[in-house]
Design a protein around this nucleic acid. Structure first.
Lengths: 247, 247
DNA sequence: CGATTCCTTGAAGGTTGTCAACGTTGGTGG
DNA sequence: CCACCAACGTTGACAACCTTCAAGGAATCG
């Protein structure tokens, strides 16, 4: 009877949870979708959880006038629909960006079943936290950075995520998003995305052509993503708290 | 031996989880902070979860040049730190916006313990999903709406959340944020926040003065928050998928 | 009642959106 | 194989929204 509370075992618990969840995903046959299809199209029941086994997908939100915001982008291995399961939002707002392959877990109360296993419950909480951090990073970038900074953030983000999963090793990767979609993701128009990509290319910082990203100057790219310089500095309440917040 | 899987009992499970979590919060004495203090100041150990029992708080992200993005705002009753617990982010990025009272759950592996109870595990997943939806809404608003639309979204959001918790009944509520903080939350400068608030007041849509919000025309405010009209319409892949996405 | 922070307003400039046109690509059918 | 079409990419000119800079007034706190 192992205690779950030692510090070292947190990571082990997560690994266990990931493995168990993976087993669940393999109980149903994978489904295929083509670019542009909604993930709902692969849903056998109302409450479904997906795992991306090939391709790219995204989560979006539409406005009544037709404009669209892409709020998250899913890469190979990502779990999709965790946050939607407990709410009426029927995941009609997730779409394939390329041809994709999905593993699924369905059932009326999928998440209720999953949380019955404490390892999976912990892993699910970790997954949700991870997606939250992605959202926070994007939010901060869109709030504080200009167009170039946002592009830098996005390109670095994909770079980091792909490397973390050993999906790439060098400084080149494939980015299947159209410039229109990049615009929806970063809160910019196609025209401006295009202009800024050109300027990044002209300055030999990063090259994005024909859905292929080549990072030329990682240092400058990182600096673009970190330095704000668009919003009014400091939104704090009192100077004392700032000194405590020293980074 | 009640089955957890009936459709009706999902809500009951969540209520049970909330109750149990509430018990845990009451095992430690509440702590007080004043406006501007970081929540870390009330943390007895490295891994802590808070519940806001009085006042307002926020989560933020700083950039190296001093600019700051507020990525979420916590109201009375909100649980804070769930997403941080499983990651090294030490919640140094949460701050009291007013004087606040916090209930705490600490311990080396707080979340590991909590997920051992399936009711709490389910409720925790629900809480994480709820925060995620807030982030998605804000992200969409900042991506697609102009300054007035963002302000409308924010003011409606607080209105809805406060009403949902029966913290207000009419169309007036107290908003302790400074205009600087509103700017950091919406990705705008103080100056522009001020101007847009004036214009909303002049048009008799909503009145925000001295931290007091009075909604004058709910319908027009809602329309401002819904209609995008700033970004290029439609960011889809092919027309076929759009017809399926009919709303 | 000083001092700090916050609010408010004006003028000027820059980043970004809009509009329009054309080139490019990829898929489809004759 | 070529023509065609639709979506995507690219570029220029112009306008709008928003930021920046500056300065004074109001509010809050010790």
């Amino acid at each position: 009877m192992t205690r779950l509370n030692d510090r070292v075992s947190l990571h082990e618990n997560l690994v266990l949870g990931r493995r168990k969840l993976s087993e669940w995903f393999h109980r149903s046959p994978p489904r295929n979708l083509t670019a542009g299809e909604l993930l709902v199209a692969a849903a056998p029941s109302s409450e479904v959880i997906f795992q991306l086994q090939a391709g790219w997908a995204c989560q979006f939100r539409d406005f009544s006038d037709g404009s669209r915001a892409i709020v998250d982008i899913y890469l190979l291995g990502d779990v999709i629909g965790m946050d939607a399961v407990l709410r009426t939002r029927p995941l009609e707002e997730a779409m394939a960006l390329t041809s994709i392959t999905l593993a699924t877990i369905d059932g009326e109360d999928a998440l209720t079943d999953l949380t019955a296993c404490r390892h999976m419950a912990l892993y699910i909480a970790w997954l949700l936290g991870q997606r939250q951090r992605r959202a926070d990073r994007l939010l901060a970038a869109i709030s504080c950075l200009d167009a170039r900074g946002r592009l830098a953030t996005m390109l670095l983000d994909f770079y980091t995520r792909l490397r973390g999963r050993r999906l790439i090793t060098g400084s080149i990767y494939n980015l299947p998003l159209t410039q229109i979609q990049i615009g929806s993701y970063l809160g910019l128009t196609v025209v401006h995305v295009n202009r800024m990509l050109r300027s990044l290319r002209d300055e030999r910082i990063v090259n994005l052509e024909k859905h292929s990203v080549m990072i030329l100057d990682l240092e400058r790219l990182t600096r673009l993503a970190q330095n704000g310089g668009r919003m009014s500095p400091i939104a704090s309440v009192g100077e004392r708290s700032l000194s405590e917040a020293a980074d």
